[in-house]
């Protein structure tokens, strides 16, 4: 028996793949199938799921409403489509801002003296040691009407004898954007840094030797060679931003509802797991579509993931 096992490569392969397969099955496939089944169900009056097959949840999500003002049986309600669109644009904007902020910083760290690099990386990582929720609350303290930013602005205005009414910073889309950018910045800095750090300095010298000034070197050599880092970072940022609900919950209040908040509320407040499940699947499909087209164009940043 053991001898056969030792000789048969295909049995060995199957056995070695077994733990991973089981893991994927229990933690990914089963929950996904359950979500799919529930999403075709209906809410029971006591907040449970009636298992049936209806597309009502999906139709509702895309704007079909039976709850109309003007007495019609059905009408178009853009509420959920707006939420989906808002989540998508916020994820795009966050990713773009994070790239423009992370790239120069990563470049600076990668070109710093090797001894200083670890210190800088350490500084990038320190915020991650604090709980995610607490970091978001810290932003609430900063952005509140009586928060640090308004106090500083007020003091400066006082010195300059300007009338100052505290700014409404909290519970705005801008607050959510700031929070998202802050939360996900390190996840962009690290992969870009990794790809920049791997570029042999002789390539910069070769570019200079061949007549490129520093701007041309950046555009023609550095940027293309660090694209794997940008791609990996984009995937690491875009996908979680699409789904997260804590940042918008705390910094957006009831004003900025994202698909993540919608799902969370369906499960916990509205007690409609069926509608929540269909929203979850739509989120997943949207994310998959965007990631698919993105990676088809730019790849997965494999070099970074492998490193």
């Amino acid at each position: 028996m053991l001898k056969r096992l030792r000789e048969n490569k295909s049995i060995q392969g199957t056995l070695l793949a077994l733990p991973t397969t089981a893991w994927l099955f229990v933690l990914l496939i089963i929950p996904l199938v359950l979500t799919l089944i529930i999403s075709f169900g209906r809410r029971s009056p006591d907040g449970n799921v009636i298992y049936t097959f209806t597309l009502d949840n999906y139709i509702r999500l895309f704007g079909y409403s039976t709850n109309c003002d003007n007495g019609q049986a059905s009408c178009f309600d853009p509420l959920y489509v707006q939420i989906l669109w808002r989540s998508l644009t916020l994820a795009f904007n966050t990713t773009l801002i994070v790239i423009t902020m992370a790239y120069p910083l990563a470049y600076f760290i990668a070109r710093a003296h090797p001894k200083k690099r670890n210190t800088y990386l350490f500084m990038v990582l320190i915020p991650l040691w604090t709980n995610f929720v607490i970091r978001v609350y810290a932003w609430m303290m900063l952005l509140r009407k009586e928060g640090a930013i308004n106090i500083i602005l007020g003091t400066v205005a006082g010195w300059l004898h300007i009338n100052f009414a505290p700014l409404e910073l909290l519970y705005t889309p801008g607050a959510v954007l700031v929070g998202m950018v802050y939360e996900f910045l390190p996840f962009m800095i690290l992969p870009i840094y990794t790809s920049l750090e791997k570029i042999d300095t002789s390539l910069y010298e070769a570019a200079a030797d061949l007549g490129a000034n520093s701007i041309k070197t950046l555009l023609r050599v550095t940027l293309p060679l660090s694209m794997p880092g940008v791609v990996a970072g984009t995937i690491l940022v875009f996908i979680p931003v699409m789904g997260t609900f804590i940042v918008s919950d705390i910094l957006g209040g009831r004003q900025v509802i994202l698909i993540g908040n919608l799902i969370q509320r369906q499960f916990l407040d509205a007690r409609d797991p069926a509608f929540g499940s269909s929203a979850s699947l739509i989120l997943m499909i949207m994310t998959l579509i965007v990631t698919y087209f993105y990676t088809r164009k730019f790849g997965f940043g494999e070099e970074i993931i492998a490193a």
Partner: peptide, 13 residues
């Protein structure tokens, strides 16, 4: 002057 580098320093992309 132009240089031929020890590691060649070719642009891989």
């Amino acid at each position: 002057v132009n240089t031929v580098f020890q590691s060649y320093a070719l642009f891989q992309h």
